[in-house]
Write a protein that binds this DNA or RNA. Structure first.
Length: 437
RNA sequence: GCCCCGGUAGUGUAGCGGUCUAUCAUGCGAGCCUGUCGAGCUCGCGACCCGGAUUCAAAUUCCGGCCGGGGCGCCA
């Protein structure tokens, strides 16, 4: 007995339950009233089932059932009968129906209607949109991917941490931050846990990870940006160079893909997608090689410039021709990277991006642990070391070599499942204009 | 921040100066139908984002506003 409303989920009814009285509960997805017989499709967490009722056997109950508005929540007790004509192989012949919640009509959005609504309408009514199994599948896969990340990172000695999202100063420069009122002070929402992760490298925890929010006040309006997104952020100490970080990242990605492939068969089927599991090692291409490849394809990009969207797409295409979907871009020019990035041979840096079919999904690298070099880099980037007092202090009393990365969860999901709008990959997206629900 | 595009029933659309009393589908309501599973059939309900302007006449043209989508930049 699961609870007073339900003894079985739709997909848990087995042969041994046939000819038994069972209880099911869920949402009324559809009612097909043929006249003297009616079929009610009930949807629960695991799928759908059919309730069949004959008018002449129970006229009152018949009338009650067929007049329930779609998407109402009901609990039904009845005899479970085998029937090969029905998709599940069984149907329920009800003797008791309890309406737990009546749905108003018309629905703001149909769950099984023949017309698909636009994303904007769907997001406005996300609680109904998410009743659709294909929309739900994305979040079930997301769950498995994150479970895989936790499992893998913990197996590698990382501990999970949580750092503040309300912060005193804009951490890195670069992207715009949201300003908020913190009692009598001005504060900001963290655009990344970068500086805190580094601070933790001074503590001896050595390996930390955080599944975290990024808040970014950029007024972008694209299919691949959110103003509130999530990431897997890691930082590790006592590294020799950035290669060690990439080794963790590629294995993390491998494990996430593998677990999704193993455990999300049903969801992948619903979405009609297949997962490409990366071959390890994931190829590393240097920034210089990238520029060369792009120039061969007549891109106007010059050495020293960051890759534009078009360049990223083109590179993705070039790589795909060689059957490579994942690839690292390494050794970016120091100029293009934030102040904390470890330089390499003057003009290069020990940084990398991980791209997946032409879109950046992670970026990271080795950080500077020498405080004097760090101060110099802050100045070179046109910032004032005084503004980084709290941060710089952590480097003055013993800071090991370290590095890490930030990995965008929605970006990854979007590429993994070939979804063309990032808003599909987060339950309640925040974008340039959307603040609710 | 720059640049495009769009707002028509609950949902998705057609119409792009008069023929709009606005199309079709879906939905909703009523009815018929004993095996539906995109059920079917009959009847009905329901909409031109807002404000100005042009015109004999505006859903349609112009201006402003509001709301949305997308591209670039930036980035995950």
């Amino acid at each position: 007995m699961m609870n007073q409303y339900r003894t079985h989920y739709s997909k848990d009814v087995k042969k041994k339950d046939y000819n038994q009285s069972i209880k099911v509960a869920g949402w009324v997805e559809d009612i097909r009233n043929i006249g003297s017989i009616a079929f009610i499709i009930l949807r629960d967490k695991k799928g759908t089932l059919q309730i069949t009722i004959l008018k002449k056997q129970n006229p009152d109950l018949f009338k009650k059932l067929v007049s329930i508005p779609r998407e109402s929540v009901i609990s039904v007790r009845g005899l479970c009968k085998e029937n090969t004509q029905v998709r599940n192989g069984y149907e329920i012949l009800p003797d008791q129906v309890e309406v737990l919640s009546y749905a108003a009509t018309p629905l703001p959005l149909g769950v099984v209607d023949k017309v698909e609504a636009e994303l904007d309408t769907r997001l406005d009514n996300r609680f109904i949109d998410l009743r659709k199994q294909d929309k739900q599948a994305i979040f079930k896969i997301r769950n498995i991917i994150l479970a895989a990340a936790h499992e893998y990172l913990r197996s590698q000695g990382f501990i999970e941490v949580h750092t503040p999202k309300i912060i005193a100063s804009s951490s890195e420069g670069g992207t715009n931050v949201f300003r908020i009122q913190y009692f009598e002070k001005e504060a900001f929402l963290a655009q990344s846990p970068q500086l805190y992760k580094q601070t933790l490298m001074a503590t001896g925890l050595d390996r930390v990870y955080e599944i975290t929010w990024y808040f970014r006040a950029e007024e972008h309006n694209t299919r691949r940006h959110l103003n509130e997104s999530t990431a897997i952020d890691i930082e590790m100490a006592f590294i020799k160079n950035e290669e060690e970080i990439m080794k963790i990242l590629e294995r993390l990605v491998y494990n996430m893909c593998k677990k999704a492939e193993e455990k999300c068969r049903k969801e992948l089927d619903i979405l009609n997608k297949q997962i490409l599991i990366p071959k390890i090692p994931i190829p590393r291409i240097t920034y210089d090689e990238v520029i060369q490849k792009l120039q061969e394809k007549n891109s106007g990009i010059q050495w020293g410039e960051d890759l534009g969207t078009e360049d990223e797409r083109l590179l993705g295409e070039i790589m795909r021709e060689n059957n490579e979907h994942f690839y690292f871009i390494t050794r970016y020019p120091l100029e293009t990277k934030p102040f904390y990035t470890m330089p390499c041979k003057n003009k290069y840096s020990r940084s990398f991006d991980l791209a997946y079919n032409g879109i950046e999904i992670a970026s990271g690298g080795q950080r500077i642990h020498d405080v004097r070099l760090l101060e110099e880099r802050i100045r070179r980037c046109g910032l004032d070391p005084k503004d980084f007092d709290t941060y710089l202090k952590t480097f003055r009393y013993g800071m090991p070599p370290h590095g890490g990365f930030g990995f965008g969860i929605e970006r990854f999901l979007m590429q993994l499942l070939d979804i063309n709008n990032i808003r599909e990959c987060i339950l309640f997206p925040r974008d340039r204009t959307r603040l609710k629900p």
